[in-house]
Amino acid sequence: MKVLLVNGSPHEKGCTYTALEEVAKTLNAEGIETEIFQIGTKPLAGCIDCGYCRKTGRCVFHDRVNDFLEIAGDVDGFVFGSPVHYAAAGGAITSFMDRAFFADLCSGKGSFYLKPAAAVVSARRAGTTATFDQLNKYFTLMEMPVISSKYWNMVHGFTPEDVKKDLEGLQIMRTLGRNMAWFLKCKEAGIKAGIPFPKREENISTNFIR
């Protein structure tokens, strides 16, 4: 089993990475393979609703979003990390998740269906809960079980060294890793026992214009 951890910070080894690394180390200790996927610092456009992904399952912009979609179907769980920018997720991770999740949803590939997911946020001081709420909404739209910890998944600090001093925050990351590992093992056991996935209905889409 493998969990993909997405670092939405422009800093490859910054505060968000430090939090994700703590989750990854715990998952590894539980026998779960991990990979940290760096979004990087190259510009990421927002979704332009061109419809390209409906036909191909990939985005019309050839960047890290498509790199992520190429491997998303082969992993078993996800953790998305973001710094807090103006009490919200960073612009790069927002564009990234908008396009990645929309492409999968429109194409019907189901790369995220019933795969556990979690959000991790990093801030110097505040804006963490708003960012945490923002990221979790992607998962609930995609029918992904949301993995919790003993508190909201956040760390505090201005530098990685600060984050390493946030002992409660690091414990939250470790608890998240153990909870994710437990869920993945339970899911695997259920599949082996022959428990089927939930019955799915044909999609109903309505609006409020009459």
Results as ranks from 00 to 15, higher is better:
1 M>P: 01
4 L>I: 13
4 L>D: 05
4 L>H: 07
5 L>V: 08
5 L>K: 02
5 L>W: 02
7 N>C: 12
7 N>E: 12
10 P>N: 05
12 E>H: 05
13 K>H: 07
15 C>L: 03
19 A>G: 14
19 A>P: 06
21 E>L: 10
23 V>P: 00
28 N>P: 14
29 A>M: 13
29 A>F: 13
30 E>M: 09
30 E>Q: 15
32 I>H: 03
33 E>C: 13
35 E>H: 15
35 E>K: 11
37 F>S: 06
37 F>A: 07
39 I>W: 06
42 K>D: 13
44 L>I: 13
45 A>I: 12
50 C>R: 08
51 G>N: 11
51 G>P: 11
52 Y>A: 10
53 C>F: 04
54 R>S: 15
57 G>Q: 10
58 R>L: 13
59 C>T: 15
60 V>H: 11
63 D>F: 09
64 R>V: 13
66 N>I: 14
66 N>E: 14
68 F>Y: 14
69 L>I: 15
70 E>Y: 14
73 G>R: 07
73 G>D: 08
73 G>V: 05
74 D>A: 10
74 D>K: 15
77 G>D: 04
78 F>H: 00
88 A>P: 02
88 A>D: 07
88 A>S: 11
90 G>M: 01
91 G>W: 05
92 A>D: 09
92 A>R: 05
94 T>H: 03
96 F>R: 00
96 F>D: 01
99 R>C: 09
102 F>D: 15
102 F>C: 12
103 A>P: 04
103 A>C: 14
107 S>Q: 06
111 S>F: 08
111 S>K: 07
112 F>H: 04
112 F>G: 01
112 F>S: 02
113 Y>A: 11
113 Y>E: 07
113 Y>L: 12
113 Y>T: 07
117 A>D: 10
117 A>N: 12
117 A>Y: 02
119 A>W: 01
121 V>C: 09
122 S>Y: 02
123 A>L: 06
123 A>Y: 00
125 R>M: 05
127 G>E: 04
130 A>D: 01
131 T>C: 15
131 T>G: 06
132 F>S: 02
133 D>R: 03
135 L>T: 01
136 N>M: 08
137 K>T: 05
138 Y>P: 03
138 Y>S: 05
138 Y>N: 04
138 Y>T: 04
138 Y>A: 06
139 F>A: 09
139 F>D: 00
139 F>P: 00
139 F>L: 06
140 T>S: 12
141 L>Y: 12
145 P>V: 04
146 V>S: 13
147 I>P: 02
148 S>I: 14
151 Y>G: 06
152 W>M: 11
152 W>A: 01
154 M>K: 02
155 V>E: 00
155 V>S: 02
155 V>L: 06
159 T>Y: 02
160 P>A: 03
161 E>V: 01
163 V>R: 01
164 K>G: 00
165 K>A: 06
168 E>V: 10
168 E>G: 10
172 I>S: 00
174 R>L: 07
174 R>V: 11
174 R>K: 12
176 L>Y: 06
177 G>H: 05
182 W>N: 15
184 L>N: 03
185 K>Y: 01
185 K>E: 00
186 C>K: 08
187 K>R: 10
189 A>S: 15
190 G>V: 04
198 P>H: 09
199 K>D: 11
207 N>C: 08
208 F>D: 15
